[in-house]
C-alpha cells in the first residue's frame, strides 16, 4: 500500500490519562475500558489523508509511570509529532505537564509538533481542569490544544489529523527536512504529484483564500 509520507508519533503523559484508549479509538474505532496497562511501549498505525496525500501515521504509545521515564525518553528520538495527554478530571496530571514538556523538548528534535490533549471530556461533571486553563497552558508553551473523549470518540480523529496537518505544513515550508529520518518523517513510495487520489490544486489559487 502506498503513501506519500510516514509520520512517527509518540503519545506521552501521566499514567491512566487514556493514552492507549486514544490510540485504540483512533486505529480501531473501539473504546476498551478494560485493557492491560502499558508496560514499555505499544504500537499502532493508521492511514490518513492530508491535502489529498496519503499519510501513514506510525504511533508509539508509551507507559506513563515515572519509573519507566528513561525508557520513554528513547522513543522521543525521531518523532515528528507528540500527543501530550492529561486527564481533565485529575488535576495532578495537568500539573505534571511542565515536566513532560521539558522532557519532550530536551529529548526530541526541535521540529517536533506537540499537541496538548485534555482527555476524558465526557466526564464534564468531574472536571478538575477547565478548558480555558488547558488553552492557556497551550498558548504559553506554543502548543496546539484540543479536548478529547476517547470514550465517545470526540476529537480523537482531529487530535491526530491536526498534528499531521501541521507537520505537513512544516514539510512544505521546508522547516522539516524529510531527508533526515531523525525528524520522524519518511518519504513514501507514492509520488505525491502523480498518484494522489486527486491531483494537486492549481498553483494559481492562493491557499486558504476563503474559508466561508
Amino acid at each position: 500500500m502506498s503513501y506519500s509520507y510516514l509520520f512517527k508519533y509518540i503519545i506521552i503523559g501521566d499514567t491512566g490519562v487514556g493514552k492507549s484508549c486514544l490510540l485504540l479509538q483512533f486505529t480501531d474505532k473501539r473504546f476498551q475500558p478494560v485493557h492491560d496497562l502499558t508496560i514499555g511501549v505499544e504500537f499502532g498505525a493508521r492511514m490518513i489523508n492530508i491535502d489529498g496525500k496519503q499519510v501513514k501515521l506510525q504511533i508509539w504509545d508509551t507507559a506513563g509511570q515515572e519509573s519507566f521515564r528513561s525508557i520513554t525518553r528513547s522513543y522521543y528520538r525521531g518523532a515528528a509529532g507528540a500527543l501530550l495527554v492529561y486527564d481533565i478530571t485529575r488535576r495532578e496530571t495537568f500539573h505534571h505537564l511542565t515536566t513532560w514538556l521539558e522532557d519532550a523538548r530536551r529529548h526530541s528534535n526541535s521540529t517536533m509538533t506537540i499537541m496538548l490533549v485534555g482527555n476524558k471530556c465526557d466526564l464534564d461533571s468531574r472536571r478538575a481542569v477547565s478548558y480555558e486553563e488547558g488553552k492557556k497552558f497551550a498558548q504559553q508553551h506554543d502548543l496546539i490544544f484540543l479536548e478529547t473523549s476517547a470514550k465517545n470518540d470526540e476529537n480523537v480523529e482531529e487530535a491526530f489529523n491536526y498534528t499531521a496537518r501541521i507537520i505537513n505544513e512544516k514539510i512544505e515550508k521546508g522547516i522539516i527536512d524529510v531527508t533526515n529520518e531523525m525528524n520522524g518523517v519518511k518519504v513514501g513510495n507514492a509520488p505525491t504529484a502523480t498518484t494522489n487520489l486527486l491531483e494537486k490544486p492549481t498553483t494559481s489559487e492562493p491557499k486558504g483564500k476563503c474559508c466561508g
Binding site: 491535502d51 478548558y131 498558548q139 482531529e158 496537518r165 501541521i166 515550508k173 474559508c211 466561508g212
Partner: peptide, 17 residues
C-alpha cells in the same frame, strides 16, 4: 468553494473546538 483552509502557522494556538 475554496481550497482547504490553510493550516495555522507553526506554533500559533489553534482552538479547533
Amino acid at each position: 468553494n475554496s481550497n482547504l483552509a490553510s493550516s495555522p502557522s507553526q506554533g500559533s494556538i489553534v482552538d479547533i473546538s
